[in-house]
Deep mutational scan, measured.
Amino acid sequence: MDVFMKGLSKAKEGVVAAAEKTKQGVAEAAGKTKEGVLYVGSKTKEGVVHGVATVAEKTKEQVTNVGGAVVTGVTAVAQKTVEGAGSIAAATGFVKKDQLGKNEEGAPQEGILEDMPVDPDNEAYEMPSEEGYQDYEPEA
């Protein structure tokens, strides 16, 4: 019985440690998101679009440190934060509304985080759909 109880105690310690790591990862992701939003706020009209992409990228980098179902929630929060940063930029006159959601080359930025393969159960990952990809044929 002692062996059984000791095993359960060790398992509990492992769960607590994993929860603490997840909590730490979420806190880091939130900190990076805040950094990115402050970065966007300090940019001029020309830099705002690039700044919004930076927020998304920093958040995406930190999301990889967070495991399990938390990833889905962090990704949703990050996307809403990026959308909010863009709205703030438009409201303050840093950028025109028609410039939001495009990178410096004018290509749409939507789907940055949505296409990231995420499995809350950590069982399997699927690649994003290939609808947006084109076949590449090298020139002879």
Results as ranks from 00 to 15, higher is better:
Gln62Asp: 07
Gly86Trp: 09
Val71Asp: 03
Val66Tyr: 09
His50Met: 15
Val66Gly: 02
Lys10Cys: 03
Met1Thr: 00
Lys45Asp: 00
Lys23Ser: 04
Ser129Asn: 12
Asp119Cys: 06
Tyr39His: 06
Val52Trp: 07
Asp119Phe: 12
Gly68Ile: 15
Lys23His: 03
Asn122Tyr: 11
Pro120Asp: 07
Glu83Ala: 11
Val118Gln: 14
Ser87Val: 03
Glu137Arg: 09
Asn103Pro: 05
Tyr39Glu: 03
Gly101Val: 04
Pro138Leu: 14
Ala53Leu: 14
Lys80Met: 08
Gly106Thr: 13
Ile112Met: 11
Gly86Pro: 03
Glu57His: 04
Gly51Cys: 14
Glu110Gly: 03
Gly7Tyr: 08
Glu123Ser: 14
Asp121Asn: 13
Val49Arg: 13
Pro120His: 04
Ala53Met: 14
Leu100Thr: 15
Ser129Glu: 10
Ser129Asp: 04
Gly31Thr: 11
Gly73Val: 10
Thr33Gln: 00
Glu20Pro: 00
Lys96Glu: 10
Ala76Cys: 14
Ala56Glu: 01
Gln79Pro: 03
Thr54Arg: 07
Leu113Pro: 02
Glu57Val: 09
Val48Gly: 02
Glu28Val: 06
Glu46His: 11
Ala19Asp: 01
Val82Gly: 05
Thr81Ser: 03
Gln79Ser: 07
Tyr136Arg: 13
Asn65Glu: 08
Ala11Phe: 09
Lys97Val: 14
Val49Glu: 08
Glu46Thr: 12
Gly106Asn: 10
His50Gln: 02
Ala89Cys: 11
Leu100Ile: 09
Lys34Trp: 02
Lys43His: 04
Gly47Pro: 02
Lys58Leu: 04
Ala85Pro: 05
Leu8Met: 02
Glu61Tyr: 08
Glu83Leu: 11
Ala76Met: 04
Val52Ser: 05
Met1Ile: 00
Gly84Asn: 14
Ala78Gly: 07
Gln24Trp: 13
Lys12Gly: 06
Val66Ile: 12
Leu38Phe: 11
Gly36Trp: 12
Gly106Asp: 04
Gln109Ala: 11
Gly14Gln: 09
Val37Pro: 01
Gln109Thr: 07
Pro128Cys: 12
Lys102Leu: 02
Pro120Ala: 05
Lys102Trp: 13
Pro138Trp: 12
Val55Met: 13
Ala107Phe: 12
Asn65Lys: 07
Thr54Gln: 12
Tyr133Ala: 10
Glu130Gly: 06
Thr22Ile: 00
Glu126Thr: 07
Ala69Arg: 15
Leu38Ser: 02
Ala19Pro: 00
Asp121Phe: 04
Met5His: 12
Gln134Val: 08
Gly106Lys: 13
Asp98Trp: 04
Val49Gly: 05
Glu13Trp: 09
Gln109Tyr: 15
Gly111Glu: 10
Ala27Tyr: 14
Ala29Cys: 15
Gly67Asn: 01
Gln99Ser: 07
Gly31Met: 00
His50Asn: 13
Gly47Thr: 12
Val71Ser: 03
Ala76Trp: 02
Lys58Pro: 01
Val95Tyr: 08
Thr72Arg: 07
Lys80Glu: 05
Lys80Trp: 14
Tyr125Gly: 09
Val118Cys: 08
Met127Val: 15
Glu110Trp: 11
Lys96Thr: 04
Leu100Gln: 06
Ala76Lys: 10
Val16Leu: 09
Ser9Phe: 14
Lys96Ile: 15
Phe4Lys: 00
His50Trp: 13
Phe94Leu: 13
Gly101Ser: 07
Pro108Lys: 07
Asp119Arg: 14
Ala11Gly: 04
Ala29Tyr: 07
Val55Arg: 04
Gln62Arg: 09
Glu139Leu: 13
Glu139Ile: 13
Val71Phe: 14
Pro117Thr: 11
Ala11Cys: 01
Val49Ile: 14
Thr72Ile: 14
Glu105Met: 00
Ala90Asp: 03
Ile88Asp: 06
Val49Thr: 14
Thr72Asn: 06
Thr22Asn: 01
Ala85Tyr: 13
Lys43Glu: 00
Ala85Met: 14
Ala17Asn: 09
Val66Cys: 07
Lys45Arg: 13
Glu114Gly: 12
Val118Thr: 07
Asn65Leu: 10
Gly67Asp: 03
Asp2Met: 00
Lys60Cys: 07
Asn122Thr: 02
Ala124Lys: 13
Glu61Gly: 01
Ala78Trp: 12
Ala30Thr: 11
Val118Asp: 12
Pro128Ser: 00
Val77Tyr: 11
Val77Thr: 05
Gly36Leu: 02
Ala56Gly: 02
Lys12Met: 06
Leu100Asn: 10
Gln109Met: 08
Ala140Asp: 15
Gly84Trp: 11
Thr64Gly: 05
Gly51Val: 11
Met5Pro: 00
Glu126Ile: 04
Glu114Lys: 07
Val70Glu: 06
Val3Thr: 01
Ser9Gly: 03
Gln24Ala: 01
Thr81Glu: 03
Glu131His: 11
Asp115Arg: 08
Val52Thr: 01
Ala76Tyr: 12
Glu105Phe: 08
Gln79Val: 04
Lys58Glu: 05
Ala17Gln: 14
Glu131Gly: 01
Ala69Cys: 03
Pro117Asp: 07
Lys12Ala: 06
Thr44Cys: 05
Ile88Asn: 00
Pro120Met: 12
Val49Asp: 01
Asp135Trp: 05
Thr33Ala: 06
Thr64Tyr: 07
Glu61Val: 15
Tyr125Asp: 10
Val118Ala: 02
Thr64Met: 10
Asn103Gln: 15
Lys21Asp: 01
Glu61His: 07
Thr22Gln: 01
Glu57Gln: 12
Leu38Tyr: 09
Val26Ala: 03
Lys45His: 06
Val77Asn: 04
Val37Ser: 01
Lys60Met: 11
Thr64Asp: 05
Ser129Thr: 08
Ala56Pro: 05
Ala107Met: 03
Gly25His: 15
Gly93Cys: 06
Val40Met: 12
Ala17Leu: 05
Asn65Gln: 04
Tyr39Asn: 09
Ala140Thr: 08
Gln109Ser: 11
Lys32Gln: 07
Thr72Met: 14
Gln99Met: 12
Val48Ser: 02
Asn65Ala: 04
Glu20Ser: 06
Lys58Val: 14
Pro128Tyr: 12
Val55Ser: 03
Asp115His: 05
Ala107Glu: 09
Tyr136Asn: 10
Lys60Val: 12
Gln134Met: 05
Thr92Gly: 09
Ile112Leu: 10
Gly67Leu: 09
Ile88Pro: 03
Tyr125Phe: 14
Gly67His: 14
Val118Pro: 05
Gly36Pro: 04
Leu113Cys: 14
Glu46Asp: 10
Lys10Arg: 05
Gly41Ser: 12
Tyr136Ile: 01
Glu46Leu: 00
Thr81Leu: 04
Gly73Met: 01
Glu110Ala: 10
